[in-house]
Design a protein around this nucleic acid. Sequence first.
DNA 1: GCTTTACTAGTTTTT
DNA 2: CTAGTAAAGC
Length: 661
Amino acid sequence: MKKLVLRKATPNALAGGVYRINYAEELNPAQLEAVMHTNGPALVLAGAGTGKTRTLVYRVARLVEDGVPPESILLLTFTRKSASEMIRRASALLDGRCERVSGGTFHSFAHATLRRFPFVLQPDAENGASAFTVMDQADAEDAMNLVRGKFDVAALKKRFPQKHTLYTMYSSAVNTARSLHDVIVDQYPQFIEEEDRIGAVIRAYGAFKHEHRLVDYDDLLLSLLALTKHDEIGPLLRSSYRFVMIDEYQDTNVLQHSIIKGLVGDEGNVMAVGDDAQSIYSFRGADVRNIHGFPDAYENTRLIRLEHNYRSTQQILHVCNAVLRDAPMMFEKELFSERTDGDEPMLISCQNERQQSSFVVQQILELHEHGLPLSEISVLFRSGFLSFDLEIELGKANIPFRKYGGMKFTEAAHVKDLLSLLRITVNPRDGISWFRALLLLQGVGQKVAGTVIDQLLASVDPINAAVPTVTGKARTSVDELLRALRSAMALIPCGDRAAVLASWYKPILERTYDDHPKRWKDIETTLAICGRYATTESFLADVALDPPQDTLDDIAPDDKEDDFVTLSTIHSAKGLEWNTVFLIWVNEGRIPSARSAESEATLEEERRLLYVACTRAKERLYMTYPAVMFEWEHSDVLGKPSRFLDAVSEEICPKYLLTEG
DNA sequence: GCTTTACTAGTTTTT
DNA sequence: CTAGTAAAGC
């Protein structure tokens, strides 16, 4: 008689050992290996279009089918879009069971964790004072500027770094785990002499944040790292998240690498997925060495390669491979596809920008007439402003489009004004928001605002403190602002609170901007979004970490079009795909951008950027460049195609000249 | 002394 | 489009 063994019942085992999903049938061998991998570290090197997302999604489903509680799976990605997309797809496989998977972006996960254990950030937090505000980069730079102003830098003979540069220095030091000294020597040698003063400003910035309970993006990551090292919380986190998966690992920086190490601990159930050829975030501290060094960082790493491309036709892959051919890289790869039925990609020389826009519009109309949905078409470009002319032309032709990247809704001055007011109601110690709000008032400039803030914040309860000692016109307006804030705070729902503040703000808006009707619409849009949130806290957290992507015009209520062309920066297009891709402005000086010419490393990043752009296309790829482009210094300049296209032969990608008529 | 206004110059990429 | 600056106005 055979010995009987007790096995832990899992849903899968109970179902007779049969998975609901037939993994072997739906995945190729390499994908299947990754999906079936359970314990220990694994690195999945996945070329563009090789089913990276699919693999992650199926692995989540497989773990859940094997009885792993969804909330103990942590899925970290770089954009909220891809995080929710993955969880949505996994849930679709297993009727909703995967919805409780933990994760999001590094920053949003850090934020959520921080809210769970706020005392680590503020050991001295009094009761009810645990509120903190997350600043976006613009806020952080404003804060830096405020602090900078307290140092008498205008009196210096030499130039002192601007707020943006100061913030970048600080952020770069944090994200690459280097000292400020090293950052200045490496990247800002012109400021070596001012090193001490720069250090002092940045320290003062840190003190300012602490004092006003402000947290910038880097603080979120730093605090998360601190939590993983905490005696009690560290082990708690490690036992909560048994399986950690990170998408786009090539874009992690040293700090994020340490966070992962801290979260995974010795057990090492970590799966990193990425493609070193698609590393395009080094300006944010991303370090390709993270993915290259992964097998060294985790002992016994299982290496899995996905090379079979399911997305694009071989004709398009020829171009992608050619772009990458001369790139120095550690993980060799050559993408291949079985789809050999496609059109050849085209490189098109246009006379000028106007003609380039007309061409794209004309082609879109034609493709659409032949039955291609607009949602299968995208236009990609290196920098946000490169699409301005095209946006006008698309508008004229009544082609609906949505733009990703570039200026965000919440970055518009008038929207930021309203957000500042809301922030004060949540965190009355938020000096940056006070400053912005006070400057709105007539008769209040930087000086008066400064004194008012000092007086208000001296009180435990700034909102209900006595009206500060200012005279004249400023007196009544400060009074009115305080009254508006008080009545707003009496209301809890975010929509109601925002409405009170918006009506206070309306006359200011009308006085300040000639185009106030258009801007008031944006305010109304903001109010509509506020209405979806129960509390102002949750609304503000989302705005800072996951701003509504839509640009100002698109979000208008009458624009409920769901078939639209996507306009996107290449950065924002990562991980996405379309049937037809127009890549505009493939000029030398645009990609690579003129600014990247300084070093080999930045230049190579531009090459990978072009690679990412080309690999988004499934069937058709049009690359266009204006033969004449406008430059600041010398008016018109002859435009020539990007140097990265030199390796792309006429055979792979025929060249065309666009002419009238 | 401080605020407001009028002007100029310089624009990568994102959490 | 907006941040920074110089000069005019209160």
